[in-house]
Design a protein around this nucleic acid. Sequence first.
DNA 1: ATGAAAGCGCTAACAT
DNA 2: ATGTTAGCGCTTTCAT
Lengths: 353, 353
Amino acid sequence: MAQKIATTSGDKENDGTRRPRVPTMKQIAEEAKVSIKTVSRVMNNDPAVKEATRGKVMDVAGTLGYRPNTPARTLVTGRSKTIGLLISDIGNYFFSEIVKGVQVATEEEGYSLLLCDTGENPDTELRCVDLLLGHKVDGLILSSSRLKDDQISNVAKYSDVVLCNRTHPDEKVRSVCIEDNALHLATEHLIELGHRHFGYIGGPVRGRAAWMREEGCREVLARHGFEKPIVASGFPVSIEGGYEAMNWILDVKPEVSAIVTYNDMLAIGAMKAVQARGLKVPEDISVVGFDDLNFAAHTNPPLTTVSVPIFRFGYKAAQLLFGAIRPNGDDTPHSDVIKCHLVIRSSTGKVKA
Amino acid sequence: MAQKIATTSGDKENDGTRRPRVPTMKQIAEEAKVSIKTVSRVMNNDPAVKEATRGKVMDVAGTLGYRPNTPARTLVTGRSKTIGLLISDIGNYFFSEIVKGVQVATEEEGYSLLLCDTGENPDTELRCVDLLLGHKVDGLILSSSRLKDDQISNVAKYSDVVLCNRTHPDEKVRSVCIEDNALHLATEHLIELGHRHFGYIGGPVRGRAAWMREEGCREVLARHGFEKPIVASGFPVSIEGGYEAMNWILDVKPEVSAIVTYNDMLAIGAMKAVQARGLKVPEDISVVGFDDLNFAAHTNPPLTTVSVPIFRFGYKAAQLLFGAIRPNGDDTPHSDVIKCHLVIRSSTGKVKA
DNA sequence: ATGAAAGCGCTAACAT
DNA sequence: ATGTTAGCGCTTTCAT
């Protein structure tokens, strides 16, 4: 028996192609013969409803296929159960893994995730932030943000903010960073192997993380009193970019025996370039990467690299954010550092005698 | 001079840590001495406003830092300028690249993107769909959906739907697929090289795409009257899984000379396993992958694989969706097929005499 | 334990 | 070219 669902009015002839009207609390209330507020209470798990009433309401809601209207709720409460995530390139495994970590934590919390890809462009980033704020996101995770400190402070006035891979003077702004020390270990490792002539292949030109890593390499060498590394920067952060960068280094300073890179992609490209010149890795030149992507163990030769628990990185960022969002979450930690470790494989070896 | 912004009422003592009240159209209207509807018109680029008025409103909006309240607009219009995207594993390059394609198209359209990762779980997928529908998304892209046809039909009643890599009988449901023929080419290529004993390493066990590819391989062999391939399935779709699968095949049927795989990750693992046994690729065994991931050209040996323009895949899916969403978009195409081609590198060669 | 009324910020339908 | 009114679906007082 086809059940006719009562609508308030204007129950236009359903021409078959139109979308069915989705049920509202009002309809549930009428059908279940309770007030609209009681329906609301049931939907919000308010304990102050009799089991019988709750059951009745749930039944009706079930058969009608009721689904709470998030925007309506957001309008009145000011909270959307949604967070925003900004990243600079989702095609990059590093970021996609961050997204995964954030996504998992978000789902655990019963939240939704609005994603924006800014392409490392500060203007796009600002537009995205506005867009997300317009959506009334309860919080924002900014990964490799290109914004200025005061711009971020400004955003933090309107929403809780967590920064990935960047610190911020404003104590309202939370952040989670990769342990800077990690690249030091890589450099030390090469020093122990006897290397003295270093090359460094850099990452995104204006990125903070890129700068920190480059500095880390320089610092360790300086501390040991060795000569400065030759730095190749401005190349695309890709296998191809690493290839070109390595060729440039080999042209300019052929005596290098150890190459430290911003990430695994560059390292792979660098190894290719070395091999293309008839040289061998690691016999002639050692190369170390950063990230430990899932195929780093499967390159030729297997890549020595700094292993970063990227998923945990994203997961942590989201947890920090929810710590801020949750009522009484003010006493949760405001920052975190993700520990990394060096994975020694076969792309590094003793310097030639 | 600090400007005091007038608020309607209840201008509570700002205790310094509270969020500032965000301006509304009403405030803009008062400040600019126009009606709230005029502000609305300006914000919606209604041409029927005098330039002078528009300028005045824009000015006030600018200084007050006005930002339209999306949920409020959504509540009244029923449209959120947001689409939902469901994928099964964002850590997988294939999906992250789809996300990228969708994201770019979405941004071009001035829309926002809600992302869910379902982990290939139909229940999670259903929950996510409900969540997104609750957000009033204007459309939904389902990538490798595990839902049943009628479940999808049901979703399509409430929102425009585009399927990635799956067709659907319901004509309301749009879809974009990878050309099934692609894997045929790979198999034919191996046949031309003289191979007769095939192995196939399969993908996700209940996935449609996985099944189509496996069938494609079988079909081509059958057409040529060659023996059936030995099929390794149920292994994790990863380098490690490929490694194990290949070992299994080598144990069970050592005479295989050609391996077709569901994707590049499996192919890389397979090559590893072959090499670990002291055999050579392609001299002893040829291997072909699928996807042409960015590092497929850099494996050892460089991988022969079916190149899939994944970005375009996602981009197309979003375009199809916006075609449906846009008013008068009914006459736009309802499905599309993404062409692939075989990239012959060095992991395939003539069969040993 | 439940209900009535007000209103969140915006747009649609009708004025003028 | 601009304004008025009503109401989207929900939650928040405040009653009862």
